[in-house]
Amino acid sequence: MIRHIALGLAVGAIALMPVVAKAERIFVSNEKDNTVSVIDGESLEVVETIDVGRRPRAMVLGPDGNELFVAVGDDEAIDMIDLETLEVVRSQSAGEDPEVIRVDSERPYLYVSNEDDNIVSVIDYEQRTLVTEIPVGVEPEGLGISPDGKWLIATSETSSMAHIIDLEAMEAVHHRLVGARPRHVEFTHDGAEAWVSSEIGATVSILDMQDTYDIKHTIRFDVPGVPRETVQAVGVALTSDGRYGFVALGPSNRVAVIDQQTYEVLDYLLTGQRVWHLALNGDESRLYTTNGVSGDVTVIDVDGLEAIRSIPVGRFPWGVVVEP
């Protein structure tokens, strides 16, 4: 018995060792190159470039952490990358022009915004079947899923709305007008709020997700010395301790730093050109940004709130995911 436990512990320790030793990896989708760049979190250099389908944009880690799902819009599919071999192992058809994807933590479901069809598709990626289609407004884009898996929020770019979808009923139950051309949705880690960024409106609408499902605050941006039109809110990242919110401001080449509690804009950090999406690393000490026009990734030190490195990747980097 004791021997068995000891053996079990030893096996466990061996199984754990490579995980502990493994450095963080950052995955960046390059929209123009049809590739995903893999950056080593230690050396901050590109260590691998994975060929994927055409026009890769949004990415998400599978719930078991073994696969990376990549929406390849022009192939109307989701490519699934094995994180051991770093190769596309299968591809799931995903309806017309899939742009943003999110994954259910409980069920084997992928949520896909299909811009051309004004629907959010729900795909069972194990059965490889279409579960259902949820009608929303014109040009669905951003998707956010609540930490408890109860809510999915889809934004429609032309209707300028956040459609709050009940994932039990699989239907939109609240519709809220937000800033023009909403792009991205991120829930706070306690699930109490959803932050919805709007590219043309240059705002972030804070939705109360506990009680009213209404907009409780709107964050506006005013970057000194930059034409107002170039300030466009896109990617959002929120620290789990409730301290900071980060918002990518597109062609103004800045990331806004926001106090997550007071919604006050604390600072604007200079990045590469046309900063688009954001991801925090595992211990939230670093923020990675994709810069579409300059074709690089800016690494921001979260404690010091300063850019510490820029890493050249492929052409038009779009999405970024950090493997925990």
């Binding site: 004004n118 407004g137 014109v138 429609s156 032309t158 209707s159 300028s160 709305m161 519709h175 007008l177």
Partner: peptide
């Protein structure tokens, strides 16, 4: 048609 897609919710 685009206006009415949002208008139906408003």
């Amino acid at each position: 048609s685009d206006n009415n897609a949002a208008g139906q919710f408003l």
